[in-house]
Structures are given as C-alpha cells and as structure tokens.
Amino acid sequence: MRRRWRDVPAAAALLAPSAALLGVFVVYPLARAILLGTRKCNVSGRVCKTVGWHQYVTVWRSAPFQNALGNTLRFVAMTVPIGLVLGVGLAVLADKQLRGIGVFRTIFSSTIASSVAVASLIWLVLLNPQIGLLSHLLKDAFPVVKKPGLLNDGGTAMWGVAISSIWAGLGLTFVIVTAALQSVPRELYESAFVDGAGAWRRFTNVTLPMLSPTLLFVAVVMTARAFQTYGEIDLLTGGGPNSAGRPTETIAYLIYGKSSKIRNDIGIQSATAVLLFVLLLVVSFIQFRVLERRVHYAE
C-alpha cells in the first residue's frame, strides 16, 4: 500500500506533460465535439442552440451519412486486405539474405516517403482521363482507362482511390512486417524443415503464427487509417462522380470535403465526426476480440 502511493509525485511529474497535452488537444476536443453534435449553429459556428441527442440519430439515418458509411466500409474492405497481403508478400519476398537485397528493401519501403497529398497527386497525374499519362498511354491496351476513365466512372472510381491508397500505405506495412519477420527465430524454420515441411507449409505453420501479433497491429492501424481517408478523395474524385450518387464520399470527406453539404454546419460536422470515432472504437474492439483468439503470441 505504501508502495502504491510512494511513486505518486514522480509519476505526476513525468506524466504531466503528456497528460496535459492529450487532455487539452485530444480529450477536451472530443468532449466538446460530442456536445456540439447536439447543437445547431449559425454560419460562424459560434451562435448555437441545443437540439438534443437525437441529432445523432438524425445524422446517422440521413441519406448522406448512410451513403458515406457504406462507401467507407467498402473502401476499408478494398484496401486493408489487399494492402496487408501485398505488404506481407513483399516482406516475405525480400526476407532472404541475397546480394543487393538492401536496395530492394529500400525500394519497397520507399512509398513511406510520400504523403497522402504527394501520392494522390502522383495518381491524379497518372489516372486523370484528360491529362493522365497512364490513361493516355494505356487506353488502347486497357479499355478500362478509356474515357470517361477510372475516376469518372461510378463503378471504378473507388478502385482508383484505393490503388493510390494501397500504394501509399505499402511502404509502412512492408517495413513493419519485415521487422517482425526478422525477429522470428531461425530455429523454428530449421525444425519445420527437418520435419519435411514445404515452403508453403513453413509459411502457414511457422511464419504466419509468429507474425500474427504484428499482423493484428498492422490491421488495426490500417483499418483506422482507412476509416479516416480524406486526402485521396479530395484530390482524386471530390466524392464523385456525382452521376453515380457520390460513390467515393467517405465519412471523413463528408465532414471536411470541398463539395460536402455539411461543411459549413459545425453541429452536424461534429455529430458526424463523433459517429466516426464511435465506429472506429467498435471496429477496433471487435478486431482485437476476434483476432486475438487466433493470434499466437510468441511470449
């Protein structure tokens, strides 16, 4: 009991900076946003009247939110599994002591260097049907990049955004999985080898179980990121094409986007943002619960 209290002064001193910063710049805004979500505010966002908690229900049920929710889930389902599989694939491919492997590792991790803005601009230059290089060069080979083009077609626009996002996220996934691979004890492979396990069996029986905590971590981070996708949408599609009923408007884009109809309405913006947070919380919780049971912890 004495021990429980003895460290309090030191703990307070050491925790004060982080706690204060996180309190003021994360917890307080969250609380404020939750409250604002129950209000209706004027165009300056400073003169508000209280509507009540049912505003959250109204927002949740509204057509734009439901559309954005569906799009966000679709985007997550597109980018997370593919990004994960590609990241693991690249890491396994490069996890070999070969001459010059460092060069390949650097290349594979290189997309970390690009911000969302940079990556989206790159893909805009490549995919835009009017100025796009890829569209121009490949339009004969691949009909899909013909006009109206990947990004202007309701059926493929989200894939255009997803490609940019997967590409930009590949580097980080690769680096983290590579790190995890290197910490897998080599003896485990040796013994699997001795047991006559083939390459695929070694991968499923040794590599995957040993990687599982990392994969859980990466999956959670990737999902959280995908749920908050904004920049790619802003630069590549603006939530459109409108002809298909805003098939790329994600929740984050609904909150901030240039062509969002709630952008100058801070009450609805806040309610939407809080709903996004709750959604993330629930999804992360489920991920931990479901995946944890299948994850093999090394220690």
Partner: peptide
C-alpha cells in the same frame, strides 16, 4: 483512436 477529424475542428 480519436480521428483527427474530431480534434481539428475544436
């Protein structure tokens, strides 16, 4: 887990 969308507004 708090999205930047929530905090930046405030």
């Amino acid at each position: 887990l708090v999205p930047a969308e929530v905090t930046i507004l405030i």
